[in-house]
Design a protein around this nucleic acid. Structure first.
Length: 262
DNA sequence: TTTACTGTTAGGAC
DNA sequence: TGTCCTAACAGTAA
């Protein structure tokens, strides 16, 4: 269930458990038909090397070797990453395994097969190639105002556009708008400058708070939307009730009472 | 059995 | 030319 905070949590697991270990083999799991994965030769470049760093841009993870290629991992709609000890048993739907000397292994699990792995020479070039906007955790006030405030369509669609702002997905876009008091289908360019600035603050705070819990939703504050994504549920902020709609084709939950469009 | 889904992107509409 | 929207991808789970 990966958006920026979940991806960041995965990156940290790699950082904690998979760096500076010699790679023995990279192997495919069962049933990788229809998946976007590197060919054998590209994967074999990692054998005998070590990951020395793990970085992230938006929802993309990059595990890098010293002076060599990077392994880009995108979790898609349902992917996850675990670093396993030798005695732990694989779950179902493992699509790729990086085995390290000593038995530790990094597993990429992806039931829905929407994930992707690419062997990358240069992270900055790759981010530019994919057309990703600035990362949602580090974008500055002015850039956020330009990129989101200048959009004529729905503000939620702007937050979701990875080419404008990388990392925000459906859940945390809804959460940020709920906490900022802005309707998801408000036209971004109709919002006052002050509200765009405020939204920037709330998006950052929201993502950071989720990152701080390692993306464990039960640890998030009780008044958040994440605990009440249900039509008719009580709003955690006012006396209203949660409503459901579609914005840009994506299911959206919001409170029609305290969220407004100007 | 039917329906919805937390991401991305190609293609078409405006 | 650019911006925006929809449908499709593949598989699971409610």
């Amino acid at each position: 269930m990966p958006e920026l905070p979940e991806v960041e949590a995965a990156r940290r697991r790699i950082e904690r458990g998979a760096l500076n270990r010699t790679i023995e083999a990279v192997t495919y799991g069962d049933d990788i038909t229809h998946m976007d994965l590197p060919d054998r030769a590209a994967l074999d470049r990692f054998t005998g090397t070590q990951f020395s760093t793990a970085t992230r841009h938006g929802k993309f993870i990059f595990a890098g070797t010293q002076g060599g290629p990077w392994m880009m991992i995108h979790l898609g709609m349902a992917g996850s990453i675990r670093v396993m000890d030798a005695d732990e048993v694989d779950a179902d739907y493992i699509r790729l395994t990086v085995a390290f000397e000593g038995g530790t292994r990094l597993t990429f699990r992806d039931p829905r097969k929407f994930g992707e792995i690419v062997v990358v020479e240069d992270v900055e070039d790759y981010v530019a190639e994919r057309g990703l906007g600035p990362d949602a955790l580090t974008i500055g006030d002015n850039a956020f105002a330009d990129v989101i405030g200048g959009t004529r369509g729905a503000v939620k669609s702007a937050l979701l556009a990875q080419s404008k702002l990388a990392g925000v997905g459906n859940l945390w876009a809804d959460e940020s708008l709920y906490r900022a008091g802005i309707l998801p289908d408000a036209r971004a360019c109709d919002l006052e400058a002050g509200r765009i600035g405020q939204l920037h603050g709330v998006v950052g705070d929201t993502l950071k708070a989720v990152v701080d819990t390692d993306a464990v939703y039960s640890k998030l504050p009780a008044d958040w939307l994440i605990h009440r994504r249900d039509e008719g549920a009580d709003c955690g902020i006012c006396d209203g009730a949660i409503a459901k709609t579609k914005v840009g084709g994506r299911t959206s939950y919001f409170c029609p009472d305290h969220q407004t469009g100007a």
